[in-house]
Design a protein around this nucleic acid. Structure first.
Lengths: 347, 347
DNA sequence: ATGAAAGCGCTAACAG
DNA sequence: CTGTTAGCGCTTTCAT
């Protein structure tokens, strides 16, 4: 065996070559062993591993990425402040690693817009991109998706080459209404979330559900918003009337908590006097003293499906639906109950 | 000018060489222009930029990283679920980019422990590491820090080569007590956070402050914890006694909110009957209907200092203190007021 | 099963 | 100011 010539004044960390020299094998062999690829005898494998350990060798990701035909990198753009994204990121890591992919994170911050975040990801030559709740218009997303697989999570996008996965907002509201009707409620008002596709979907879900329960006459949508303030404002409007509805479904948890707080402070008992439902299963809704009945989405499932979709595209598999719509699920907690003096409509 | 030989069947994205060919210059020149380095005439610069734009060229970060002498990468380990880390990450991005450094994020998730997260960062050959709230023992951190600059944020670490930056927990509690005493409170109890250095520091801050105000006889520490449940439990214990203290300072916001909720439900008015102070300035504390007086730390400042410290180490500058301790600040909101029937101690 | 050699796309000296 | 020449550390054919 030829002793590989040791490079003269090595400065940095040990390289593949150093390990090869130490183990008396070729660099190629070390490479094979280090990435667990087949093609090395057990003996060699052990010797190489030992040499690597001796030298404290650690593969250089940069070199690896550069040399590899496919980067095996999944780029993920997310918003640091968005709690739901945290759940998604967790799920994405788990799913990606299970399939031998690495994840590179690119955060959205006040100083880093979406274009910048995407740019970074492209710079790493990711094989595919997972965009969590992007807000850029459909057309740039489509442009991006023409260059590499892009799957948008948590937002409805129907721009041609973009894959998307999100949950059915109308269905979520439908479930909330169903729940309340089952409890015996009829006067169910909806505090809307303003403009935006999500708010529209939820409003639609509310209306559809009400009609379906023959409660079309009771449909009442109050102007609301996505903040506790908006919820509080709507609740104040409610309080000004001589009679309160028996239940309210808010656009989201923040809005619901705002309403909840205002009502409680006004001496209204929840859920005894009025039931309240939120949307999102946010941190605040889970808080013991809020304990809000709400609608949640399965982040880990979404994450898994998003990763799978990306891999399907990378492997050139056929994909039936470009848009994946998941069902959200109602989470019954403490702010909903039968209306005062009424028994549930059905057991 | 020699026409650079076009490589035959190019498949992937355009490379530096393609741009060079298109602009009729050498690769080196393109490199210079692309990274904004000095050494190219305006004319050339413009032509190269134009060529790059024409071809839709985007530098390959992997290759860049590999070729550069120093990676110019700051590795950041953080916990996706920790809201405070989000603030830090934002600040880190801003500070790092201002100094021409790139940030690579490595998240802690249920499936990714600290060792793994650090491993990833080392794989990228980051120049320095910023660890947000690491929980690994001091010794491994020290080992790590012997190989590259490591600055720990949000935790006290005195292991030799590790830099650390965190805020003074005892001081935070001291400020809370000061605030209450200024309002006229004397019977101030502390709901502790159990074991752990942070809890110990805060407990100590409470005791010191009480003594300093000649309130040593009123010192009373209740067993608590870091959850709303723990806070609620402590509050129940408080309620069982025939007389309530006039103020309580909890280990953290969660604990405080638990106590707050329990007291309010028991008919105790806050802050009229009792004042409550939390710690952390968490999302929940800011919630309008919680509106908790609390102690906060300046995440952006911490982030900036952490980045600066890392760069100081990289530039071989002298560093006076290995451990940087920042003062937290009290945030007065709605859960503290003068005790029933008393006027403030001083105007 | 193992080794030799050719890059991956870029930066960094150095030479003109 | 511009071009030439070496690598950075690894993966990947292609031989052996």
């Amino acid at each position: 065996v030829t002793q590989p010539a040791a490079r003269s004044p090595r400065r940095g960390r040990p390289t593949l070559e150093d390990v090869a020299a130490h183990a008396q094998v070729s660099r190629a062999l070390v490479s094979i062993v280090m990435r667990g690829a087949p093609g090395a005898s057990e003996t060699t494998r052990a010797r190489v591993l030992q040499a690597a350990a001796d030298l404290g060798y650690r593969p250089d990701t940069r070199a690896r990425l550069l040399a590899r035909t496919r980067s095996q990198l999944l780029g993920v753009m997310f918003n640091v402040r968005h709690a739901f994204h945290s759940d998604l990121v967790e799920g994405i890591y788990a799913a990606a690693e299970a399939d031998g992919y690495d994840v590179v994170l690119s955060a959205l911050t006040p100083s880093r817009d979406e274009a910048r975040a995407e740019e970074t990801l492209l710079g790493y030559r990711c094989d595919a991109l997972l965009l969590l709740g992007p807000e850029s218009p459909a057309s740039p997303l489509a442009d991006l998706a023409r260059r590499l697989p892009v799957v948008v999570v948590g937002r409805r996008v129907s721009a041609e080459p973009v894959d998307s996965i999100h949950s059915a907002d109308d269905e979520g509201l439908h479930q909330a209404v169903d729940h309340l009707v089952t409890l015996g409620h009829q006067e169910i008002v909806h505090i809307g979330g303003g403009r935006g596709p999500k708010a529209a979907d939820r409003r639609r879900g509310y209306r559809t559900a009400m009609r379906q329960h023959d409660l079309g006459d009771h449909i009442r949508v109050l102007e609301g918003g996505q903040t506790t303030d908006a919820g509080a404002r709507a609740a104040r409007r409610l309080l000004r009337a001589d009679t309160l509805p028996t239940a309210v479904v808010a656009y989201d948890d923040d809005c619901a908590v705002g309403a909840l707080d205002t009502l409680v402070r006004a001496g209204v008992s929840v859920p005894r006097d009025i039931s309240i439902v939120g949307y999102d299963d946010s941190l605040i809704s889970r808080f013991p003293h809020v304990n809000l009945t709400t609608v949640g989405q399965d982040a880990h499932r979404m994450a898994g499906l998003a990763v799978r979709r990306a891999l399907e595209r990378l492997n050139g598999e056929e994909v039936a639906e470009r848009e994946l719509i998941l069902s959200p699920h109602l989470i019954v907690r403490g702010t909903t109950d039968v209306p005062r003096g009424k028994a549930p409509a059905r057991a």
